[in-house]
Amino acid sequence: MSKNVDAAPTATVAVSTTTKWKKIKTKMWKYRGFYLMFLPVFIFALFFFYLPMIGIRYAFYDYNGLKEATFVGIKHFKTMFTDPFKSKDFFNAVLNTVEISVFKLLLTTGFAVIVSIFLNEMINIHFKKVIQTIIYLPHFLSWVVTASLFSLILAPNSHGLINTFLLNIGVIKSADEYIYFLGSSAWWRPIYFLINLWKETGWQTVIFMATLSGINPELYEAASIDGAGRFQKMRYLTFPAIRNTILTVIILNLAKIMNLFESVWVLQNNAVIQTSQVLETYIYNQTFNSGRIPNYGYTAAVGLFKSLIGMVLVLVCNHWSKKVREGRGIV
């Protein structure tokens, strides 16, 4: 008796599963064209995004790329957090990454908003387009070229544009006082942010300009009739219109803040290593600087930790995004 009682629901589940699969198959066949188009993307993602993730396992192994990997459990994570010689550098890199990334994000986004609003206020359309083109261009320069350019402009000699200017206007008294912007711990970060502003502000204005162009001009006309001045229109019309876009841009970029390498790497040098070392440059240095074959296990562990923080940030940002964008998340 008990056998029959147990068998009935199992059979129902089996039938229901079979029906579900049939429906899915039918749908897949119906939309086979779309699935065919999706296939290359799926294969690409599988091979280039997911397959390499097998390497994550090395975070739990001692592995130098030659000898067979030895399982060591969470040894590398312990080293990262508790080793008296390595944890200090690691935490310094984590702190630097967060500080540099967050400040850079807020600064470039804020500046892009201001520039977008100013551009939006421009009446002469041709002049506006010229300005837009000029400020977009730096985005297309590689970081290597950008670093070379700024090391020339900021050179601590009479060829350096900034130092010569400072000398000419009397801020510095003589050639002995030339400022080594990229070689000074005090100056490195402000200069890094300025270079980022120069390079990325223009590109970030694209999104804000798109939002601004969507504002109904009748609203401005109505505001004018009501006696609103230019500043009041900016404050009460333009800014509220792009507020959601600003939050979206910040949230989307916040998820990527742990990925900071190229821009820091090309501007970094031995004298500013403590203020400029971020997680990705730390991983690189630990991997290739010892003068010996590295233990990839430790650096894989640091990389995995970085990815986990990144994933948490994505989930948190997704949560915020849903709130800000009326239920629409980023993932």
Binding site: F85, K86, D89, I273, N285, Q286, N289, S290, G291, R292, I293, P294, N295
Partner: peptide, 9 residues
């Protein structure tokens, strides 16, 4: 191999 990378830095 373990510490020279940090030491060199």
């Amino acid at each position: 191999a373990e510490y020279n990378g940090s030491l060199i830095t």
